[in-house]
């Protein structure tokens, strides 16, 4: 019942936000040229989704996002694992990683264009670069969350390294990793969209940038909604897996 109440409250807040948006624009409190009304924006969104070119842009972006994610997560996880397993390496690498993590990544966008040119590789590369540090750091934390007692138990019952990896490390780490996956996706999506907005011939980020430059506010806001929906969908998907594993947490 409480869960239902929370969901209802969330829906109510979203509806309320849209209502306020609509009122602000319709009443002229905010210039409608600056902030087109919610209903107009939704209508534009419907229009845009009919267009083949927009659908193609969405497909391009989705491919880039999935590719960057599929590369960054295993590579980052492996590096994070190796760092966490080696004390010396961990001591050396951790502050450096945190430093790298703290730098705004967009500074490096021109370098990606120099290396990869403008296109798929540049955007995937930048998405990868935006994501990998958070994956490495989260994995390191996840490995540290594995309890020594559990490892000793496995050892005392003669587990092989492989068995220890899959039967102790992986399940211990999974809750932290799923949470990390969610956050990594945010970084990944942001990275790819940013790369598209900076320099690209296609993709939804490129479209949004074009609409923005031409002050097509309706289209721009519709684009923002599209990206919001993509982000929320992914988020909820991982959350759903998370709650299914929630009994693991003590």
């Amino acid at each position: 019942m409480r869960g239902l109440g929370v969901k209802a409250a969330r829906v109510a807040i979203v509806v309320a936000l849209f209502a306020i948006w609509e009122i602000l624009s319709r009443s002229g409190i905010v210039n409608p040229r600056l902030l087109p009304s919610a209903s107009d924006t939704l209508a534009t969104l419907g229009d845009l989704l009919q267009r083949a070119s927009v659908r193609k842009d969405l497909a391009v972006t989705a491919t880039e996002v999935v590719t960057a994610f599929a590369l960054a997560v295993p590579v980052g996880a492996l590096i994070g694992f190796l760092i966490a397993e080696n004390r010396y390496f961990a001591d050396v690498a951790k502050p450096l990683l945190f430093f790298a993590f703290s730098i705004p990544k967009s500074i490096f966008l021109p370098m990606f264009i120099l290396v990869f040119g403008v296109g798929f590789a540049q955007k995937v590369g930048f998405g990868f670069f935006s994501t990998i540090f958070i994956v490495i750091m989260s994995t390191t934390t996840a490995v540290e969350s594995v309890k020594v007692e559990h490892l000793t138990v496995a050892r005392s019952y003669g587990a092989t390294p492989m068995q220890t990896a899959f039967r102790v490390y992986l399940p211990s780490m999974l809750p932290v990793l799923l949470e990390a996956l969610r956050i990594s996706m945010i970084f990944n999506l942001t990275g790819v969209i940013l790369a598209e907005m900076y320099a690209s011939r296609d993709g939804i980020g490129h479209q949004i940038a074009t609409w923005g430059e031409n002050f097509q506010m309706k289209q721009l806001l519709a684009g923002v909604l599209m990206i919001a929906v993509i982000a929320i969908t992914f988020n909820e998907l991982v959350r759903w897996v998370e709650t299914r594993c929630s009994h693991w947490r003590t």
């Binding site: 007692e149 559990h150 138990v153 005392s156 399940p171 211990s172 999974l174 693991w248």
Partner: peptide
């Protein structure tokens, strides 16, 4: 040959 019983926290919660 040998079984070991540890403290409470040693069970796998998953």
């Amino acid at each position: 040959r040998v079984g070991v019983v540890f403290q409470e926290a040693s069970l796998f919660p998953w």
